[in-house]
């Protein structure tokens, strides 16, 4: 009963024993180095899919679980960073800031956008606004409600044309106002500076 004797024992026999093909007839087997025994036992378990958690080969569930507990960031900056670093390497690209989506939009859409909310002018019961006529303007839906237009089709068409003209003009005016207002502050600063200098003289 020495270790040397155990080593002589064929590994094949050990394997057969674990598979239930041989019986534990010899006490020597128990003395077999536990590491080898344990490894064989584990292999057997996995083959029969009896292992509980260590050797789950189907990991999709555990991944899904891990993803669920992952905190969600509403931060898109990372994505943009990668985009920009690729751009930065290309020296020619200076103004690719805007995503191409923006280029699809036509000019008029911005102006229309500015007037869509138009009909909802708040009218207090006793406000002086009630004295001011309100123009009807629904450029996008096309169901403009005329106040007192003729019902004759020809005239109606002409009126519709005029309305569209006015609509376009209003859109252009709003856009122009927005743009001009951008220089207002610097203009004002320049003016006050000039005035201050004149007063000094």
């Amino acid at each position: 009963m020495t270790k040397a004797h155990v080593n002589k024992l064929d590994d094949q026999d050990l394997s057969a024993l674990l598979d239930g093909e041989e019986f534990l007839t010899d006490q020597e087997i128990a003395a077999k180095e536990s590491a080898t025994l344990g490894r064989y036992a584990l292999i057997g378990d996995v083959m029969r899919a009896e292992s509980e958690d260590d050797f789950v080969l189907d990991i999709s569930d555990s991944v899904a679980k891990a993803l669920e507990s992952e905190p969600v960031y509403a931060d898109f900056s990372q994505k943009q960073n990668t985009e920009q670093t690729t751009q930065a390497s290309d020296n020619v690209v200076a103004f690719n800031w805007r995503r191409p989506v923006a280029q699809l939009a036509i000019a008029a859409s911005v102006a229309m956008f500015a007037i869509v909310g138009v009909q909802t002018l708040p009218q207090g019961d006793d406000s002086p606004m009630n004295e001011i006529p309100m123009l009807q303007s629904t450029p996008l839906t096309g169901v403009a409600s005329p106040v007192s237009y003729s019902s004759e089709p020809a005239l109606e068409n002409a009126e519709k044309g005029f309305r569209e003209l006015q609509q376009q003009r209003i859109g252009a005016l709003v856009l122009e106002h927005q743009r001009q207002a951008r220089v207002a502050y610097s203009l004002e600063k320049a003016q006050t500076k000039a005035q201050a200098e004149e007063e000094k003289k």
Binding site: V116, I132, V147, F162, L173, H177
Partner: peptide, 22 residues
Amino acid sequence: EVSVFVQRPLPGRRPSGALSSG
């Protein structure tokens, strides 16, 4: 800021009036 535009009149009898957005 307030912008004042003076333009050629549009064709047709356009009524004066106000529009507002916000």
